[in-house]
Design a binder for these strands. Sequence first.
DNA 1: GATACGTGGTC
DNA 2: TGACCAAGTAT
Length: 353
Amino acid sequence: MNELYKKQVRNALVTWFQEEKRDLPWRKTTDPYKIWVSEVMLQQTKVDTVIPYYERFISKYPSLESLATAPEEELLKQWEGLGYYSRARNLQAGVKEVVEEYQSIVPSTRHEISKLKGVGPYTAGAVLSIAYGVPEHAVDGNVMRVLSRLLLIKEDIAKPKTKKIFEEAVMELIDEDNPSAFNQGLMELGAVICTPTKPKCLLCPVREYCTAFFEGMQEGLPIKTITKKTKVHKVKSVVIQANDGKILLEKRPSKGLLANMWQFPMVELPTLKHSVEEIIELDYGISISKREEIIAFKHIFSHLTWEMESYGALLIEEKNLAANCKWFTKEEIELQPMPVPVLKIWNTWKEKV
DNA sequence: GATACGTGGTC
DNA sequence: TGACCAAGTAT
């Protein structure tokens, strides 16, 4: 890349961003904490989905200290429906580190900020450039797509190794005077113009500098391999009500899928050797009545699928209740963080009662 | 380096 | 409908 080309590209990009950028809530602040929250929420998540979560989250936790001291269940409830729930726990862990070890000042070097929980190469660069104006790369999927086209980079972006090529390209191209607008401009371009399919090249501010456009290859880039199917898990879940009207909830393990979220007692059926009632008795230490179906549906996660059948049942006898289980009133259940498929069962059950 | 980790929207 | 996508990180 020669100097003139670099200068033209960054000027065109930054100017376009400043004039055309969308009006987003996290663009109204330079508070590193709020930028950080937005960047974590935006990981693998659409802008439109994030907006209401961000607004609610910042209202509830306007400062590092308020988030640092929040109860985990309340925090997860705030995050409910956003997905990738470890982001919430890691964010709080990172925030606690800043409060305790950095006197509540978010670090402003890549070396230090990268030590924080949940802050990877992208988030580090995003917070540094957007909140502090530090010229650091922030390479996400948008940036790789935009630059693969602009510079005709044909490496497979599914390979982790490839990201380095893009980080180096950004460091060459970046506007040292306005790294915030440059990095955001790259992402904004990817989001609204240089889209995965049918890019709007005729509206693109850097079209005249785009090698892929010149070659007519924009639809064929970036190169991305990998695509694996999700495994199907057949699961059955039971909404169990006791005589006093309370309902049984189970807290999921603190690691792995949907960690620390609550659900109705659930069994996976690799075989049909036992009935659901029998497995519930063995696993949860309670006997229940014959069940009525609530709803059956598929829930597709990123790497697996639940084929879910859910039932309502009544408690017959509590013998030796599993330690991770607890009875809740209907009102209390609303306060527990539950994943989307469990909410679906709960909402259907409520309608039917 | 490969895999786990959510959800909702689009074509 | 299934496949793919969206401002990635941890292990």
